[in-house]
Amino acid sequence: MEWSNIIEAYQLQPEEIEQVTERVFKIKANSQQYALKRSRLYPDDLGRWQAIQQFIQQKQILGFVPLYYAENNQLFVQDQEHIYYLMPWVEQDYTDQPIDEYATAIHAVGRLHAATMDYHQIAPMKQNKTTIEQQFQQELSTYRDQMLKYVRYFEAKRFMSPYELQVCMYYRDIEHTFNQLERWQEIYLDVMDETEKMKYTLCHGNIRPSHYVVTQTNTYFLNWEDAFMTSPTYDLAAYYQYLFQFHDCDIGKVIDSFSIYCRYIDLSDYEKALLALQLLSPSKWIQEVSSSMQSSRNKNTVNSSIKIEQEYRRLLFGFQLQEFIYKTLKSEQFEDAY
């Protein structure tokens, strides 16, 4: 890294430079503190990223840490293959009173989505309903066939590795997930006919504890590199699936946080069905099982076992959350049918 090029571009006179993470540097200069981020952006991403930055500033969104302009009037500095940006350093508040991080984060997500909400007509999707239904059926059939193939292959062995045993032990739960996924596919297609438009918001794209800072006055989101306009369910699914990989995930608090979110954004049955489909998608599970089979040839079975467990938790907790989501459906045809 050529520090001189980057520092000069922002006209800073650093007193101290501290590497905080692999990509974040804390700079003390001009009696202030700054955060310098070596981003994961590529040149082709810059147009979208800068448009999002301008949109956020125009909307005056709370929880956004503004970026500094470099001397060339750009929001970034490119040093060889890396792209950097600079912003004020925001210090996490530490108090004796514990905070509920799930609720705190979801309040911030709700405010973000409410401040940027628009609507998107779904008429084109209705026109392709038959194609979508066929895709659903094909995907689910493929998932079931792949899962059964893996289980039969593992069970035919005299001795199974730990991750192979896990896959076989979890097969019944995965099959329940398939069944519920099929049910939500039917709900999604049914409520599509009753829906004219869906919500469309700015989504952060990668919400996790390392990407927000809680202060006494606000919750600030960091790292907007993956932000884009889409259904608000994208942020919810991504955030929850991140939490679900950990064994100590408090599903009760997750369910409470979903109720909190719905105070900001009144999700339609169509959007709830879309969220449930995202939570129950077994694609990452199938990919991890397949990847573990390749890794086992390199004898890396411990790492495979850990990843299999993480993907299983995502589906297990996702299954529990979708049970609650089902109970919140508004259409009378779904009452007491669970």
Score class of each variant (00 low, 15 high):
His113Lys: 10
Tyr119His: 13
His107Thr: 01
His113Gly: 02
Val109Gln: 04
Ala105Leu: 06
His120Trp: 08
Val109His: 01
Val151Met: 04
Ala114Glu: 13
Phe154Trp: 06
Leu140Thr: 12
Gln137Ala: 13
Asn128Gly: 05
Tyr119Asn: 08
Phe154Asp: 10
Arg144Leu: 12
Thr131Ser: 02
Ala108Glu: 01
His113Trp: 12
Glu139Met: 14
Gln146Ala: 14
Arg144Lys: 09
Thr116Gln: 09
Met147Glu: 05
Asn128Ser: 07
Ala123Cys: 06
Glu155Met: 11
Arg144Tyr: 06
Gln138Gly: 03
Glu155Lys: 11
Ala105Gln: 04
Asp118Lys: 14
Arg144Val: 05
Ile122Thr: 00
Pro124Asn: 07
Tyr153Ala: 15
Val109Phe: 02
Ile106Trp: 01
Met125Tyr: 10
Ile106Arg: 03
His120Asp: 05
Arg111Leu: 07
Val151Ser: 09
Gln135Ala: 15
Thr130His: 07
Gln138His: 15
Ala115Tyr: 04
Arg111Pro: 07
Arg111Phe: 06
Phe154Leu: 10
Ala156Tyr: 03
Tyr119Gly: 10
Thr116Gly: 04
Ala114Ile: 00
Gln127Leu: 15
Glu139Cys: 05
Thr104Leu: 11
Lys149Val: 04
Thr142Arg: 10
Met147Ala: 05
Gln137Glu: 14
Leu148Arg: 14
Phe154Pro: 02
Ala156Lys: 15
His120Tyr: 14
Asp145Val: 04
Ala156His: 15
Lys126Pro: 00
Leu112Lys: 10
Phe154Glu: 04
Ala108Val: 07
Asp118Val: 08
Tyr150Ile: 01
Glu155Phe: 00
Leu148Tyr: 09
Ala108Tyr: 02
Arg152Pro: 02
Glu133Asn: 11
Glu139Arg: 13
Gln121Thr: 04
Met147Leu: 10
Arg144Ser: 08
Gln146Ile: 09
Thr104Asp: 05
Leu140Pro: 07
Val109Met: 06
Gln137Ser: 14
Met147Lys: 06
Lys149Thr: 15
Lys129His: 10
Val109Ser: 01
Lys126Phe: 01
Lys157Met: 09
Thr131Ala: 08
Arg152Cys: 08
Thr142Glu: 15
Leu148Gln: 15
Ser141Tyr: 07
Glu139Trp: 06
Ser141Arg: 10
Gln146Phe: 12
Lys129Val: 11
Gln134Leu: 10
Arg111Val: 09
Ala108His: 02
His107Trp: 00
Ile132His: 01
Ala108Leu: 02
Ala123Gln: 11
Arg111Asn: 07
Val109Ile: 11
Tyr153Val: 08
Gln127Ala: 15
Gly110Arg: 04
Met125Gln: 14
